[in-house]
């Protein structure tokens, strides 16, 4: 059974910023993040009656959002592969444009640097990316991330640690490239 309008609006007001920002960090595209936010709230509306309260509502919403984002990325990647053989669509620019994304919530002086950071975050594996984004960007604690990702706290610690080391290594490689170009 779906929620009534008032309850749904209340729920939307409470969680829309969380869902939208997580989707934005994941997908790095404003239109895609809005699309995911729509899909997440439609799913919440349709399946809230099946929510078994084994976890908190917030955790459940985090999980739905992450799964939707991962599915979206997989779908886009399959489209990308299709473009290699097939006809190019209008969305191609959008797909290839991810690395040019400027996060609207980032301070002006950090825009260029964060663009590079997000570009490298996209090269991480699914779990590392999720753990890093939830930890560094969303500011969640390791036990909170562990609950969302259904992993142990030590696994999350290791994922975040690995993600940070990979990012540092890749950023330092970019620095070397940058210096080579300059010289």
């Amino acid at each position: 059974m779906a929620l009534d309008n008032k309850d749904f609006e209340k729920l939307y007001n409470q969680y829309n910023v969380l869902v939208y920002n997580l989707a934005l960090n994941y997908l790095q595209n404003i239109e895609d993040a809005e699309e995911i936010t729509q899909d997440v709230f439609i799913q919440i509306n349709n399946s809230l009656s099946n929510f078994q309260e084994k976890s908190s509502l917030k955790t459940w919403i985090y999980r739905i959002t992450i799964n939707k984002c991962l599915d979206f990325i997989k779908h886009k990647n399959s489209q990308k592969r299709f473009f290699i053989f097939g006809k190019k669509s209008q969305n191609e620019f959008e797909i290839s444009n991810v690395s040019n994304f400027e996060h609207p919530g980032i301070l002006l002086e950090n825009k260029e640097k964060s663009k590079l950071l997000f570009e490298i975050i996209n090269e991480l594996g699914e779990n590392q990316k999720t753990a890093f984004l939830l930890s560094k960007v969303d500011g969640l604690s390791n036990p909170e991330i562990a609950e969302i990702m259904k992993l142990s706290v030590s696994s999350v610690e290791s994922l975040v640690f690995r993600a940070k080391s990979i990012l540092k290594e890749k950023i330092s490689n970019k620095f070397k490239e940058y210096r080579k170009k300059k010289n």
Partner: peptide
Amino acid sequence: MESTNGMVKVHP
């Protein structure tokens, strides 16, 4: 690495 510090939540 610290470039996301001070990031503000965005409203849809």
